[in-house]
């Protein structure tokens, strides 16, 4: 330590004061700008994240894939992709390779895909977008049937199309 100037307590306090000032200015700026935003883009100080589908999936122990992960799985023929929406929505446009398995008909129609599925088959489920929970409920149901490698794509058809993903129409995958 020879030759080094000891750091004085006052210097530490002045540094702490500068840090506090910088943080306080950031809080003031963030608050002011958020308050002045148009109501459509203003963020409430407390959001309802506990009821967001991704938070529900996390609590339910269902892994989540975002757009990049969903693209990888859709392109991977080893992954079975299930569309949890009603049949009419599926036929109007679904992700490539997706098969229709509406939540309300899952118990009855799961047997149609028995030849594709083993407990270790990787499965991706989705529905309309972040506002729907059908895909999460379907994933929980499938887990109850013993399927282990389930992944939820919460962005669903809405995000997929927004980012230029291909959509297939009709009743075939």
């Amino acid at each position: 330590m020879t030759g080094r100037t000891p750091v004085r307590r006052g210097e530490i306090l002045r540094l702490a004061g500068a840090c506090a000032g910088l943080l306080a200015a950031a809080v003031a700026l963030g608050t002011a700008v958020n308050t002045l935003r148009p109501a459509s883009s203003r963020l409430p100080w407390v959001g309802d994240w506990e009821h967001h589908v991704e938070s529900k999936a996390f609590r339910a122990g269902i892994p989540v894939a975002f757009l990049a992960g969903a693209r990888d799985r859709v392109e991977n023929p080893a992954v079975v992709v299930f569309d949890a929406r009603i049949r009419e929505q599926y036929e109007a446009g679904h992700l490539p390779r997706a098969r229709s398995l509406p939540l309300g008909e899952a118990d009855r129609r799961l047997g149609d895909y028995a030849s594709l599925l083993t407990p270790d088959t990787p499965i991706l489920v989705y529905c309309g977008g972040a506002d729907c929970t059908d895909a999460l409920e379907l994933a929980v149901k499938l887990r109850g049937y013993g399927f282990q490698k389930l992944t939820l794509y919460p962005g669903g058809v809405a995000e997929w199309t927004e980012y230029g993903g291909k959509i297939r129409e009709g009743g075939q995958p």
Binding site: L22, A26, G30, T31, V46, H52, S55
Partner: peptide, 29 residues
């Protein structure tokens, strides 16, 4: 805020607070 929530570290009540303030800390720092 969605990106912050995906870290699953903060309680939901604090997610928006961080999303509102953190970018301005980055800017000023």
């Amino acid at each position: 805020a969605l990106a912050v929530n995906r870290y699953r570290i903060l309680p939901g009540e604090f997610v928006n607070l961080v999303a509102i303030v953190l970018p301005w800390i980055e800017l000023l720092a």
